[in-house]
Nucleic acid binder design. Structure first.
Lengths: 196, 196
DNA sequence: GTCTATATACCGATAGAC
DNA sequence: GTCTATCGGTATATAGAC
């Protein structure tokens, strides 16, 4: 592999790591370059700056994770196992590293305040949602956003208080969303046992 | 009201506003002081620094919102209306301002990386969860974290792509979580009986 | 392509006038 | 109590040597 491609990859890896652990604001260009065994000049040469590095990360690195997760879900059988596979990739990622959810949060936060980044992230989200919607038969595209939101939200609660989110309850909650939305879309009018 | 209390309140208001809109890192002490009609010295005199301001905000201002939301939910009748009330406070907050969810995300992000802030936030979360758990009869405390997570997660998706989250589907997803978790606690029988 | 050196700007925090 | 002035540190980004 050429030196240039090697540097590019090292910079992207280092950026993903530092953005996830220290946050996008907390990771300086110098720190990223140093972690990649280069100096800041390399970042500006390859990506034009910090934001260029971020955009590149947004469209490349994270898509790979989405794909890997989708593959694991497709391999599982039954709704419960699929939900468990989904949640497992949040708590103990088999593929890649444990940093992808943290990076996901960082990218969201950054994009939620900048129009250009927001539009790019929206496209990526839509791809991920579409995969979920087709997997769980949600013709009007409601399951995808809800599931992805719940995954991120449960992870937020877990990061603050790990004891509050057991694997079992996470799976139950995820299943509840899928079943709840599916019942709505199929208009089956199943009995919803209201208590209280 | 004395000048001192007035200044304190103005600084807290300005901090909540700027932390929510620009992010905690993006809001400088000078900017906060200026927005409050004071100078940075006032911040250090009242709160000892930026972090003191943040902690004060974490334990005071946001608790009021939690309380207000709980009151609105308690006033609603039926699960659907309760979920709608919950979601309405995310999309179109009646009490306070539209910034509280953004501030919630900022506080979470800050706390997720700092132990002391994380423990303080955990206590606040636990108070909010306990209210939800007693409201929806979740003896083992699973509904609270799941609902709060889903609310925050749905808001994340909505901020990136508003068209993906309709009010109707949000309510359906929230209801799905409550029903899903409630069924688990009663069916498994591994926990206490559901109280009504 | 990658480095060193540097320009420019802003940050959090402090000291002391008033 | 609140102000001005300022220190020390660090950020992004650039210019030019190699």
């Amino acid at each position: 592999m050429e030196r240039r491609a090697e540097t590019r990859r090292a910079l992207l890896d280092a950026a993903a790591e530092l953005f996830a652990t220290r946050g996008i604001d907390g990771a300086s260009v110098d720190a990223i370059a140093e972690a990649a065994g280069r100096t800041s000049g390399a970042v500006y040469d390859h990506f034009g700056g910090k934001e260029g590095l971020l955009f590149c990360l947004l469209e490349g690195w994270v898509d790979d994770v989405t794909e890997a997760v989708a593959a694991q879900v497709a391999a599982a059988e039954g709704l419960d196992e699929q939900m468990a596979a989904l949640w497992r990739n949040v708590t103990r990622p088999v593929t890649g590293d444990g940093r992808w959810i943290a990076l996901e949060h960082e990218l969201w936060r950054y994009a939620s305040r900048r129009d250009e980044a927001r539009e790019r992230l929206a496209l990526r989200y839509q791809r991920a949602w579409a995969g979920m919607d087709s997997e769980w038969a949600s013709p009007d595209g409601t399951v995808g956003p809800a599931l992805m939101g719940l995954l991120l939200g449960l992870d937020m609660m877990r990061r603050i208080d790990p004891s509050a989110i057991s694997d079992c309850m996470a799976v139950e909650a995820l299943r509840g969303v899928v079943l709840g939305l599916r019942r709505e879309t199929t208009a089956a009018g199943e009995t919803k046992q209201e208590r209280r």
